[in-house]
Simulated scan of single mutants.
Amino acid sequence: MNTDRRKKWISENHFLHVLNYCMLLPGPEAQQVDTYLTWLLHKTKGESVAGILFISPGFH
């Protein structure tokens, strides 16, 4: 895993790998990529918050 912990970034290659994998799964790629990357950088608590915030505008 090529992450820059100081900036909390992942490499472009890792991002493209994640994006390609999420494109194979059913559902919106943006939410899947967002949830995975947040989990990767902030674990379960961050993933839960990101998932809720990503879908909450749809309930307005």
Rank of each mutant, 00 (worst) to 15 (best):
M1Y: 04
M1E: 00
M1P: 00
N2D: 08
N2A: 05
N2Q: 08
N2H: 05
T3N: 05
T3G: 00
T3A: 07
T3V: 13
D4M: 03
D4Q: 02
D4Y: 01
R5T: 12
R5E: 14
R5K: 10
R5P: 12
R6S: 06
R6H: 07
K7R: 13
K7W: 07
K7I: 07
K8Y: 01
K8E: 12
K8A: 07
W9K: 05
W9I: 12
I10W: 01
I10E: 00
S11V: 01
S11F: 02
E12H: 05
E12T: 11
E12D: 12
N13V: 09
N13H: 01
N13R: 03
N13W: 00
H14S: 07
H14F: 08
F15K: 10
F15L: 15
L16K: 13
L16E: 15
L16F: 05
H17M: 13
V18F: 05
V18L: 10
V18K: 01
L19I: 09
L19D: 11
L19F: 15
N20Q: 14
Y21F: 15
Y21R: 11
C22F: 05
C22K: 02
C22E: 13
M23S: 11
L24H: 11
L24Q: 15
G27K: 14
P28H: 15
P28A: 15
P28F: 11
E29K: 11
A30F: 06
A30C: 14
Q31R: 14
Q31D: 14
Q31Y: 13
Q32N: 15
Q32S: 15
V33H: 07
V33F: 05
V33A: 10
V33R: 03
V33L: 13
V33Y: 06
D34G: 12
D34K: 13
Y36W: 14
Y36R: 03
Y36E: 07
Y36A: 09
Y36H: 10
L37H: 00
T38R: 03
W39S: 01
W39Q: 00
W39P: 00
W39A: 04
L40I: 03
L40R: 10
L41P: 01
L41D: 01
L41K: 04
H42Y: 13
K43P: 00
T44Q: 12
T44M: 09
K45F: 02
K45L: 07
K45S: 07
K45G: 02
E47M: 06
E47K: 09
V49Q: 11
V49M: 09
V49R: 06
V49C: 04
A50Q: 09
G51T: 03
I52S: 02
I52F: 10
I52R: 04
L53F: 06
L53E: 10
L53N: 12
L53C: 09
L53D: 12
I55K: 01
S56Q: 10
P57K: 02
P57A: 10
P57C: 08
F59V: 04
F59D: 06
F59I: 07
F59H: 06
F59C: 04
F59R: 02
H60L: 13
H60T: 11
H60K: 09
